[in-house]
Design a protein around this nucleic acid. Structure first.
Length: 1077
RNA sequence: GGGUGGUUAGCUCAGUUGGUUAGAGCAUCCCGCUGAUAACGUGAAGGUCCCCGGUUCGAGUCCGGGACCACCCA
């Protein structure tokens, strides 16, 4: 057998990993893994595209660790996995980055065609500004993804596929134009995203006005009329009856079309200083306080909000409808769930064009849209026409006072969003917008969702399911510049034509447009004639979520209409092969992002989910549970962490630290714990193996068959098989953590039990090499490398190269090209595993007993007395007696008899077998068994195989060995320990021989410590001189041979150390000296 | 305001269908062991299982109510 490469027991993971990276690169291992024969077909994975112009951060490591693991696993299992990279390149983040670079603050950079052209050019250039960082990051963490052929959302091919998709939606009648309320920065008239407003909230003083809306008595709904009559209210005697509404935005009052009440709330008719008013019952007290010097509101009738529906009123600015030439039914009471009586009057003023909920309500009641301002916030109606909306408040309040409809005008300090770049208050404003009618497909969206396996499962009917249930139509248009232009062409009179490909557009225009850049402004120049009308493009671009949601087809440049070209046909085949995905994985914020856009598009077009399994990760937070953000300064950069701990340790942490769906805390300290637990332990076993294999040069191919190896070897192999089984099952259920924990447990046992117990077998004496031990540990290590490959690809590769590839050049070139090792039941002796568990418990107890007796493990003891609860454990301990004896350093083991017993009911078992009325007797049963005489009788009879019956309260309780727990108590005079039905007692009477042996072991330890301190190699031989008195001298003389053997010592002399010896003083005044020879 | 998840040792987390003395790793201390090991072993210390109520012979676990944290939506 060739020598293994020598390795350091304390590796520099940065070096180890960079060596592996070089190897992967030079041998094209990733490409090979993509190219290798796949017996099981395709495992479909979709890469969720990151925004390339951001910086890679730790949360990308989290997602990518999982996105890497399953493809690696499936590939080893014999699937082919296409791992096409992708980049999200359009949209606001890019535009904002460019705006910042240009120093544009609130200027409308799309005002002219030339400006827009320049702006989009800069956007395109900036998209990949950080691409180098991404490439470095991707490679360094060992994330295998094809970055040479990624899909890029701004490429013409991609856009064309998205157009094609939109056309198909249009043909299905799922595209329509409507209004949508969006936050707008007035003056520049730009739509803002939620992120842009999030930081802009400020506390400001705004008007707080209560306005009277006189009711039209003649239109009073019957239900309300009946209520009032029932409560003896005479309509004729009412004084100026009015609804009172409350608002902090008087400038929206001219746009009022409805007043809203909550159907379930209680409302009242009350006498106020200004006549009769209708307000919420919960607002009476508050409104009485408005005029403290005047009498409070006096309730004259009470009724539910629902009876007021369709009650009409006079709105304070009737001129709005005239000036805007509006028609249609408006100015009546509508019912709305969102109305509360927590503030104001409990009656909401509705100006639908200035609020999302209000718009929906207005639509529901069919009220016309009244635009009191334009999108730049300039008033279009009333005397205040031409004023900026915020400046109009004063005039409008004055007018309302003049008209006698102002109930009360005050001020209110509240928080309101401002646009930080212009300083203007945000205007929420209904803009024409394009929608995909997902709401119509709501039932199917939910049905398709039921086919998806969500990890964690609660997302399915929780966050994602709820989101689908409350689905509203998907607003797909944005009034921006850098994005996929909507392929919507409109004629002047409103006819719509959706273009599905460049070829189609070429045919429509009669020009070859195959080299047209599909972005604005170029595409805006294209017009065509159809049906005698001229069509030009609508100005909007597409929501970027639609871009990424289109990737299943757009990444393959799918154009559905066959045109006879081989390329189109091939793309279609490729798409079919890669749809739907078997697996995707992103963080939980994508439930409303990519998870949704994939799902919606796929449901609408293909009547299928887009993915079958999805891991939805929790967010990464800092050590204290705080969100990682630049402003808090708690961001951990991935690259330095990779260098410090190794990418493997960071990955390992991501898999094993907590459930994937839980919020995960991250810090260097936590990563280093995982490193010490798993990565270092595996490495240590590996380095142990290499160290001794290189000395002993075992012939592994000549090792005995598994069946002929010692039990401890078969035990390790059995545990190895068991680990394979658990891991495979876990990974098949996308349970990375479960698989990782199983591997971790195995590595711990291999190190702390197998290697520790068998150290001496790897240390050949008189030239006999224990090839069983070597073959067993070798197999365990190689298998660990394969099992760890998807988790810690560098470590796995490193082990594999040295242990396998360097020995056998016919083996696969990389661990990642190996087959996944499958469970082999014939090699897994479950019985042996449980027997070993019994030994482990007994050893543990023996050590505890030693500790109680203050007897160090080096002192051999004559006898251990063991009690085991059941006979199979007795068999096990008898078979594996030697292991226990050696580990406990005792000469003999006997089974205890004559113990006293403690008996308790085995509750889970007994509870199930008792009839329900007898279960109440449980406390009495426990009490009865606590009686020593009953306990002794029950224990002895049950142990003898008889069945015992207890009579309690006239009920016969039949007891069997399974239904009770019997513990033994040690006879007096022994140190003992007790657990899980086992008892271990130690006989601490030392014979002179045992004493000498203990002393010898002390000497061995001192000599070996001295060798270590003298920096000798393991294989160095020494001369030893011992200057000893009394017992120690006697022990050294008596045990001279074994002392020499265990210290690699060729000669022992008794006397003073010589000059040049490495000298160590001993406890009792003696000295030892040694010299290397 | 609505939704989802969470709350168990100083820290990070397990805890299966309700059942025995609620566990592991890390950290601390004592002792021990050690020629792979920066490792390991024994023991100690550390818990009102967030709170209140209910169901039950029995609740960390099931039910109801509440508090707090995180995220999403409004």
């Amino acid at each position: 057998m060739a020598k293994f490469l020598e390795i350091s027991p304390q590796p520099n993971y940065k070096e180890v990993e960079s060596k592996v990276l070089k190897f992967w690169k030079s041998q094209n291992i990733f490409a090979q893994s993509e190219a290798k024969a796949a017996s099981k077909g395709e495992f479909v994975f979709y890469e969720g595209p990151p925004t390339a112009n951001g910086q890679p951060a730790m949360h990308h490591v989290l997602a990518r660790a999982f996105k890497d693991l399953f493809p690696r696993y499936k590939s080893m299992q014999g699937f082919h996995v296409t791992r096409k990279g992708g980049w999200d390149t359009h949209g606001l983040p890019v535009e904002i980055a460019v705006e910042k670079k240009l120093g544009l603050t609130g200027r409308n950079h799309g005002a002219t065609r030339a400006e827009m052209e320049e702006f989009n050019k800069l956007c395109r250039e900036s998209v990949f500004a950080n691409i180098q960082d991404w490439n470095t990051f991707t490679e360094r963490m060992g994330y295998w993804v094809d970055l040479e052929h990624p899909y890029v959302t701004y490429h013409n091919d991609y856009i064309e596929s998205v157009w094609n998709l939109l056309k198909r939606l249009w043909q299905k009648g799922l595209v329509e134009r409507d209004y949508k309320v969006v936050p707008v920065s007035p003056r520049i008239g730009t739509t803002l995203s939620a992120n842009e407003i999030a930081d802009g909230y400020r506390d400001v003083n705004d008007p707080s006005v209560y306005v009277r809306l006189p009711i039209r008595l003649g239109t009073m709904p019957k239900a309300l009329k009946a209520e009032l009559e029932h409560q003896n209210v005479s309509l004729e005697n009412l004084e100026n009856p009015a609804l009172v509404v409350w608002t902090t935005t008087p400038w929206t009052l001219p746009s009022n079309t409805l007043a809203a009440v909550n159907a379930e709330l209680e409302y009242v008719l009350a006498r106020s200083p200004q006549g009769h008013v209708i307000v919420a019952a919960g607002a009476v007290e508050r409104m009485s306080q408005l005029y403290k010097d005047l009498p409070p509101l006096e309730v004259v009738a009470r009724f539910k909000g629902s009876v007021m529906e369709f009650l009409e009123y006079h709105q304070p600015f009737p001129e709005s409808f005239e000036e805007l030439k509006l028609e249609g039914k408006a100015h009546f009471v509508a019912l709305a769930d969102f109305v509360t009586d927590d503030d104001g009057s409990g009656v909401a003023h509705e100006a639908p064009v200035y609020g999302a909920e209000d718009l929906a309500l207005g639509r529901q009641y069919g009220a016309p849209l009244c635009f009191g301002t334009d999108k730049n916030g300039i008033m279009q109606v009333t005397e205040a026409k031409g004023k900026f909306f915020k400046d109009a408040d004063k005039d409008l309040i004055r007018i309302m006072k003049e008209r006698g409809v102002m109930y009360h005008a005050g001020q209110l300090l509240h928080s309101y969003p401002f646009h930080d770049r212009t300083g203007d208050p945000i205007l929420y404003f209904a803009r024409p917008s394009w929608f995909v009618r997902t709401n119509k497909m709501r039932a199917n969206l939910a049905a398709q969702n039921q086919k998806i396996n969500w990890y964690p499962p609660h997302i399915k009917d929780g966050r994602f399911g709820n989101w689908l249930e409350n689905n509203v139509d998907w607003s797909i248009s944005r009034e921006r510049y850098w994005g996929t232009p909507l392929p919507f062409w409109k004629s002047e009179d409103g006819d719509l034509h959706v273009v599905g490909s460049i070829k189609e557009l070429s045919e429509l225009t009669g020009r070859d447009l195959s080299s047209l850049d599909l972005h604005r402004p170029f595409v805006d120049d294209i017009t065509f004639d159809l049906n005698g009308k001229t069509f030009s493009r609508v100005p909007e671009v597409l929501d970027v979520w639609f871009d990424s949601g289109a990737m299943p087809s757009a990444q393959w440049h799918l154009l559905l209409e066959a045109d006879g070209s081989a390329q189109r046909q091939e793309n279609l085949e490729t798409f079919k092969k890669h749809f739907p995905a078997d697996f995707i994985c992103e963080a939980i914020d994508q439930t409303r992002g990519w998870f949704y856009s994939l799902h919606a598009i796929s449901t609408l077009l293909y009547d299928s989910p887009a993915y079958k399994n999805v891991i939805c990760l929790g967010h990464l937070v800092d050590e204290k549970g705080k969100k990682m953000s630049k402003s808090l300064g708690n961001v951990v950069d991935p690259l330095p962490a990779f260098d410090k701990f190794g990418a493997d340790s960071v990955r390992w942490y991501m898999f094993t630290a907590s459930e994937p769906g839980d919020t995960k805390r991250f810090s260097e300290r936590l990563v280093s714990e995982g490193q010490r637990g798993f990565v270092n332990t595996l490495w240590n076993v590996y380095s142990f193996f290499v160290l001794y294999a290189n000395i002993d040069n075992p012939n592994l191919s000549n090792a005995p068959n598994i069946e002929q190896r010692p039990e401890i070897d078969r035990w390790l192999i059995s545990r190895l098989e068991q680990t394979k089984e658990v891991m495979t099952k876990a990974l098949d259920h996308y349970d990375a953590r479960g698989a990782g924990k199983a591997l971790d447990k195995f590595v711990m046992e291999m190190s702390n039990w197998y290697v520790r117990r068998n150290r001496r077998r790897f240390w050949s004496q008189d030239g006999t090499v224990d090839s069983s031990a070597y073959a067993t540990l070798y197999e365990a290590l190689v298998t660990c490398a394969k099992l760890a490959a998807p988790f810690t690809p560098f470590l796995a590769e490193s082990l594999y190269q040295n242990l396998v590839r360097n020995q056998d050049s016919s083996s696969p070139e990389s661990v990642h090209l190996c087959e996944w090792t499958n469970f082999d039941a014939s090699r897994c002796d479950l019985n042996l595993i449980s027997e070993m568990n019994a030994v482990l418990i007994v050893v543990e107890l023996g050590r505890a007993a030693r500790a109680k007796a203050s007897l160090g493990n080096r002192q051999p003891l004559p006898r251990a007395l063991v009690y085991a609860r059941n006979s199979s454990d007795v068999t096990a301990l008898t078979r594996l007696k030697d292991v226990a004896l050696e580990e406990l350093n005792v000469e003999d083991m006997e089974f205890l008899t004559g113990v006293t017993y403690k008996v308790r009911p085995n509750l889970p078992v007994l509870g199930k077998t008792l009839p329900s009325d007898a279960k109440k007797l449980m406390p009495q049963i426990t009490a009865a068994l606590a009686n020593p005489e009953i306990a002794a009788r029950v224990a002895e009879n049950l142990n003898a195989g008889k069945i015992e019956t207890l009579e309690i309260d006239g009920v016969n309780i039949e007891l069997t060995l399974e239904k009770v727990l019997i513990d033994a108590e040690a006879p007096a005079g022994f140190e003992s320990a007790l657990s899980e039905g086992f008892l271990v007692a130690l006989d601490t009477n030392l014979t002179p021989e045992l004493k000498l042996e203990g002393l010898k072991r002390y000497l061995v330890r001192m000599v070996n410590q001295a060798r270590k301190d003298a920096k000798l190699e393991v294989s160095d031989k020494i001369e030893l001189r011992l200057e000893l008195e009394g017992e120690l001298r006697e022990a050294a003389q008596e045990k001279r041979e074994s002392l020499a053997l265990e210290t690699m010592c060729s000669s022992i002399e008794f006397g003073e150390p010589e000059a040049g010896d490495f000298v160590v003083a001993l406890e009792d005044g003696g000295r030892l000296g040694l010299t290397k020879i």
